[in-house]
Design a protein around this nucleic acid. Structure first.
Lengths: 227, 227
DNA sequence: CGATGACTTGAACGCCATCAATCGCTGTGG
DNA sequence: CCACAGCGATTGATGGCGTTCAAGTCATCG
């Protein structure tokens, strides 16, 4: 399954919360819809956590083709690099509030606090796992399978009261799945026709999954996700 | 460019060499062509380095579709996980000799030796970068672009005396690039016809790149590699 | 109300997959 | 030693999945 960072254990949220009152310089910041948070190849001086909204991380080819590597949703930490530079550009998908902490101070604290250190490693590991699964998805899954996997990922990550409310548009989804937005739209429609989905609003961004088993059967992924 | 682990700075080879004479339990082992070195989801108790030969890391879908995440060539370190389990299956592409060290002892030494620690982080970072670039390749590049990128990656990693000697067959390449082996073969032929390549042997695994600029122009990747 | 943006849907095309035939090399057994 | 099986690779023919191009709907906003 596309990794569900959200349900992973130590999401560092607690720790980052602690840090925000403690010995790490930390702050909140708002980014308007579509604005850049950091750019590819810029120095990675900060680590970010989504408070509210959504963020996309992408790379571009010289001719403008775009590949989104991940969506970051409330609670998610992003921009944590192993090296010294960002390797994706991060942008706000909608108006978004983030907490940010200086990477240096985080690393300073991590030196003395093994719990923080472990959290950081777990985070890196989770994002590595996500991108590795994404390689499999992009390399070997059909359009239908990709869209099913996407819906299941989002079901796990941002369902509230049984409803998935997507912050991103069809083009963002397409660029995440290596498809065109028309194909994404068609697959959404196909699942709707099959009775797997219900749409609650006219822009079709609010989705109820009626047949998760059906989607799971189509998604064809290697690592099954419990619940 | 598909990340060139080989040309990256501290390849840990030096350090691992040291370790092999020193305080880390280390050994060599041979794997016959096609044999498994470790399996997906197995505990990651060892870290490996290719001495001679070549290794492929892959994931499988339930129905047998395969995605190779990386090839590991002499000098490369693989099987180093952030978490406790392998997330790929590793197999010998040809008869292969590897050095292996117990992960535990490596971590023990890393605690006191900051150089080792830094090397480990650099390695993780390099493999993360490789897989992130691979996502872009698989999501947004055409067949032609993928094959060109592959040739350039291999040119950087295993050229000896101006000749690329590929250890893997067309199917392995295809499963690395998210294509069929027929398509890989056709693109090789197309490059040959254009005069970008010359083949030195009947199985067409020994390749001389005659026009690297031509390949680079086609490969369309975001991060240019300095020679 | 006209303009704009997000989404859907239709029609046609094209890239790559699929199916199939052939070639050359290697190794094995009669 | 040679016949033949088997593997890897190339090449051709065909088809299909997903893209491209295009039209149309609906909601929002000036």
């Amino acid at each position: 399954m596309l990794t569900n960072l959200n349900s992973k254990m130590p999401r560092l949220l607690g720790e980052l919360d602690d840090l925000s009152h403690a010995k790490v310089s930390s702050g909140e910041f708002k980014y308007g819809k579509g604005t850049e948070i950091f750019g590819e190849a810029e120095p990675a001086d900060y680590v970010y956590q989504v408070i509210e909204g959504a963020v996309r991380s992408h790379k571009l080819l010289p001719d403008g083709r775009r590949q989104i590597g991940a969506f970051h949703l409330p609670g998610d930490i992003f921009g944590l690099e192993n090296g010294d530079f960002h390797r994706f550009t991060a942008e706000a998908v909608v108006d978004t509030t983030v907490r940010l902490v200086k990477r240096q101070s985080l690393e300073r604290v991590a030196k003395t606090d093994p719990a923080i250190l472990r959290s950081l490693r777990t985070l890196t590991s989770a994002s590595l796992e996500h991108v590795e699964n994404h390689v499999l998805l992009l390399g070997r899954n059909t359009a239908r399978e990709r869209v099913a996997a996407f819906l299941l990922e989002m079901k796990g990550r941002l369902t509230a009261a049984g409803v998935i409310v997507l912050p991103m548009n069809r083009r963002d989804i397409a660029d995440y799945l290596g498809l065109t937005f028309e194909t994404v739209s068609r697959e959404f429609s196909a699942f709707h026709r099959k009775g797997y989905l219900r749409f609650l609003d006219p822009t079709q961004r609010q989705i109820v999954v009626l047949n998760a088993a059906g989607l799971t059967g189509i998604a064809q992924q290697t690592s099954a996700k419990p619940e």
